[in-house]
Simulated scan of single mutants.
Amino acid sequence: MRPGDSERVRSLPLFASLDERSYAAITGPAFLQRFPANTQLLLEGDPVDFLYVLIDGQVELSGTWNDKDTVLTILRPVSTFILAAVVLDAVALMGARVLDRSNILMIPGEAIRARMAEDAAFAVAVSKELSGCYRGLVRTIKNQKLRSGVERLANYLLQLHARAGGADLFSLPHEKRILASLLGMAPENLSRAFQALKPYGVEVNGSDVHLRLVADLRRLAKPDPLIEKPFDNSHEARAEYQAEMSAAWRSA
């Protein structure tokens, strides 16, 4: 790895508390690989031999059933994924596909499990990471089950508004087909949800969104700190924020 890449990996909450000996033991047998766009890294049911660390590019995590498929999340750097499967030495519950040309550090699962058994600090770091992921899953389930599609979209737009530093004009990070899947709705329902938000000042032009009546949108959305991901610098916030919608999906 380039020195700058190593520093970025080292700064992840999962590795930040490790001493140099433990970090070297984990990353020593790892290797960095470049994947072209549209490479399938994992299929559901595949054995998981590595913990993946996305350094550059984008990775889509997805699920399928009965000829249906859905996008669970889109990962951006720097993110780990498939941690729970590595810890349990279990098969993958979701597929992973490279969207853009990506650099991915692949750490053998045996090295992760061996270090957990030998290094209590690393075992605690893994526990904290998975705990943050579990809390992300709870937030996602509450969002899906307690809110309508229009309310989910309204809260998602308010999150983008916050990430943009409060700017009223910003761009959607995904094409609308993927966004619909992330929000748990069909593409045609997403279009109807955008139409339903027009009276609340939501204007959409392609991927550009303009929020003209933020206060009205917030009254409709009723954002809840027990559902929305935090934006502070706590361990919980860092753990939950690494995946686009929920850190839970990157651990499974």
Results as ranks from 00 to 15, higher is better:
Met1Arg: 06
Arg2Trp: 11
Pro3Leu: 11
Asp5Tyr: 10
Ser11Gln: 13
Pro13Asp: 02
Pro13Met: 05
Ser17Asn: 10
Ser17Ile: 11
Tyr23Asp: 02
Ile26Val: 15
Ala37Lys: 12
Asn38His: 15
Asn38Lys: 15
Leu41Glu: 00
Leu42Thr: 03
Leu43Thr: 10
Pro47Glu: 12
Phe50Glu: 04
Phe50Lys: 05
Tyr52Pro: 05
Val53Asp: 01
Leu54Pro: 01
Gly57His: 01
Val59Ser: 00
Thr64Tyr: 06
Thr64Trp: 04
Lys68Gln: 15
Ile74Arg: 00
Arg76Tyr: 09
Val78Gly: 09
Thr80His: 11
Phe81Val: 08
Val87Cys: 09
Asp89Met: 11
Leu93Tyr: 09
Gly95Trp: 03
Ala96His: 01
Pro108Ile: 09
Met116His: 04
Ala120His: 11
Phe122Gln: 03
Gly132Gln: 05
Thr140Val: 13
Lys142Cys: 12
Lys142Asp: 13
Leu146Lys: 12
Ser148Lys: 08
Ser148Tyr: 06
Arg152Pro: 00
His161Phe: 15
Ala162Tyr: 02
Arg163Trp: 14
Leu172Glu: 04
His174Gln: 14
Ile178Asn: 00
Ala180Phe: 00
Ser181Glu: 09
Leu182Arg: 00
Leu183Glu: 02
Pro187Val: 07
Ser191Asp: 15
Arg192Tyr: 14
Ala193Asn: 04
Phe194Lys: 02
Gln195Asn: 11
Gly201Ala: 08
Gly201Arg: 01
Gly206Lys: 12
His210Ser: 13
His210Lys: 10
Leu211His: 00
Val214His: 02
Ala215Arg: 05
Arg218Asp: 07
Arg219Gln: 11
Lys222Leu: 14
Pro225Phe: 10
Leu226Pro: 01
Ser234Asp: 07
Ser234Lys: 14
Ala239Thr: 03
Ala239Trp: 03
Met245Glu: 01
Met245Leu: 11
Ala247Arg: 04
Ala247Tyr: 07
Ala248Met: 08
Arg250Ser: 14
Arg250Met: 14
